[in-house]
């Protein structure tokens, strides 16, 4: 019996190892886009949530790059649409479109718009205007239940985004409807465009707010795929919608901007790009 458990354990460790390698490749894609895109991209915000998006797509969600419109798939909504490069890098890694296409981000006629819309294979919902993803997720979660589907819906919002009133309308609705197939991930990187989140508009106590709205709420390190995955597993046991407050660093892994607002929207110079790649290599050793 112990031998079987050991094999399962080893298999899990192998999968996590593979995930970490994929995340490294995805992070490199994000850095490539940050260097390639003329007007710059929201790299800080992309690097704070990219580990979680990758973990969802490679370890949790049921989906198929060969059939992006498969009706039984799990859905992912990037409500904080400015982190689109993170989502695009994951979708390319998963095989929804060729990785080379990432170079066309924000260019004329590209399928990769500055903020997500439906022309990109694998994108489940449009976003860009903040605060709307949970509502869209509610519609999808109810629709899934109505057709007797096991499909689950994951929505990722930013902590700054929680300033939007519609977020709180939707939190009430989802708890009212007891949507146990809806999972909210809050990318708690502590920054928004102008300043620290707590300076602009106080978010704490975020966990208390979510719990009082009727959500099963967890806190987790958003840069620890294993722990994040455990929490996603837990969400499947809840009778209520689940919120995961994921503590993250804006610009995670890119030393020159990490946990500052300097990388809200930038383009990397050649020198900066080389330094960034060096950071990435060192971090994964």
């Amino acid at each position: 019996m112990n031998a079987v458990l050991e094999i399962i354990d080893q298999r899990h460790m192998d999968e996590i190892q593979l995930l970490k390698e994929r995340i490294k490749s995805i992070r490199r894609s994000v850095l490539d886009m940050t260097a390639n895109t003329e007007g710059g991209i929201h790299v800080g915000s992309s690097l704070s949530c990219v580990d979680m998006i990758a973990t969802l797509y490679f370890m949790k969600m049921r989906h198929s790059p060969h059939r992006p419109d498969w009706s039984e798939r799990d859905r992912f909504i990037l409500s904080k649409g400015h982190a689109a490069p993170a989502l695009y890098a994951v979708l390319a890694e998963a095989g929804y479109f060729p990785r080379e296409e990432l170079q066309t981000l924000r260019a004329m006629n590209s399928r990769l718009q500055g903020h997500p819309d439906l022309r990109t294979p694998g994108v489940d919902a449009p976003s860009g205007s903040l605060g709307q993803g949970i509502s869209i997720g509610i519609g999808m979660a109810v629709a899934a239940k109505r057709r007797g589907s096991r499909s689950r819906v994951y929505v990722l919002v930013g902590d700054g985004e929680c300033d939007e009133g519609q977020i709180w309308e939707a939190l009430m609705t989802a708890a009212h409807l007891k949507l146990d197939n809806l999972v909210l991930v809050i990318d708690r990187n502590g920054w928004q465009l102008d300043d620290r989140t707590e300076e602009i508009k106080r978010k704490v106590p975020l966990k208390g707010k979510l719990e009082s709205f009727g959500w099963q709420t967890y806190m987790v390190d958003g840069h620890d795929p294993e722990k994040f995955l455990d929490t996603l597993d837990l969400s499947e046991l809840s009778e209520w919608p689940t919120a995961i407050i994921a503590h993250t660093l804006k610009g995670k892994g890119l030393q020159m901007i990490e946990d500052t607002n300097k990388g809200h929207k930038i383009r990397l110079s050649n020198e900066q790009y080389l330094a960034a790649i060096k950071d990435l290599e060192e971090a994964s050793q």
Partner: peptide
């Protein structure tokens, strides 16, 4: 097939979008 979302028109529009994206 009826959902009264309360006095929250913005949420209602978003939920409708989700329904539409799911083929309703």
């Amino acid at each position: 097939r009826f959902f009264n979302v309360g006095i929250s028109e913005q949420d209602m529009v978003g939920i409708a979008a989700g329904f539409s994206l799911s083929g309703n």
